[in-house]
Design a protein around this nucleic acid. Structure first.
Lengths: 132, 132
DNA sequence: TTTGTTTATTACCGATTAGTAGTATAACAA
DNA sequence: TTGTTATACTACTAATCGGTAATAAACAAA
């Protein structure tokens, strides 16, 4: 199951460039998904849920964010399919819908680390050159 | 090379939850990276560069975006380390810095496809239930 | 020099959004 | 019923951001 859904074009086997042919509408969907993850408050909430489901109050305590704020962000995360909502009596519990989010975040972390590593090596070389 | 850089905490071998322990500052870095990819115009530019390097004029033609707009987005993409800048005479050529971006986008595409697939199956079941 | 081309930058407008205070609603307990 | 707790919702403000027109700078060609 990759890109065989009705709205996303199918990829041919000998084509490693399927992302190039995506329509503007599909790109907008992808961009919208990235936008959900482009707010540190929402990433904080996602992190707080990594160890298991939490209700809203527990999320508020874990993140230090305001109640209305958390509620708003949870709605956005739920609409994006990143978290699931489950009512249990008075409380509403939220949990990560798929570990996929963490895959994404760790890929970005790795990339950022590599980038920073490269930059510091470049600076070190420049420094060595300046000394000589 | 994963998270051994100075600013990002190292992960212990038996820990598959390194993302949980990231500091707010690191989360902000990750969020900022996602924000760069959260605009369909920038994704269009990335797509246009998938087949190889292009100068600004070629990118403008490929995407249909305005010149000032493309220039601004290219600056943002370059600052994020997603594209590389290379001056060749009068023209400035840009190219994708790492195929990593496409990995990310295709992961999101796959996830969105799966999501849409699930939703249409759910609707189909509801429809079948309504008919009966 | 003058003209045209390529790219970057600045200033501005309109739209979006994060955070918050206040309010509403729903479930439960006393 | 009354009060309390948990969550959601509704303006509202301040800040951010995308798109664009205008300008500038660098360079090539006539």
């Amino acid at each position: 199951m990759t890109l065989s859904s009705p709205v996303l074009p199918a990829s041919s086997p000998d084509d490693d460039c399927r992302f190039v042919r995506l329509s503007p509408e599909t790109l907008q969907l992808v961009a919208d998904f990235f936008k959900v993850l482009s707010e540190s408050s929402r990433l904080q909430i996602v992190c707080a849920l990594k160890t298991g489901q939490k209700n809203v109050t527990e999320i508020i305590e874990a993140t230090g964010l305001g109640q209305a704020n958390v509620s708003k962000h949870l709605k956005i995360l739920a609409q994006a399919g990143i978290v699931n909502r489950q009512q249990q009596g008075v409380c509403v519990y939220y949990q990560i819908a798929s570990g996929f989010v963490f895959e994404l975040c760790e890929l970005v972390c790795d990339s950022l680390s590599a980038q920073i590593q490269q930059q510091s090596e470049k600076i070190a070389r420049l420094e060595a050159f300046r000394q000589a």
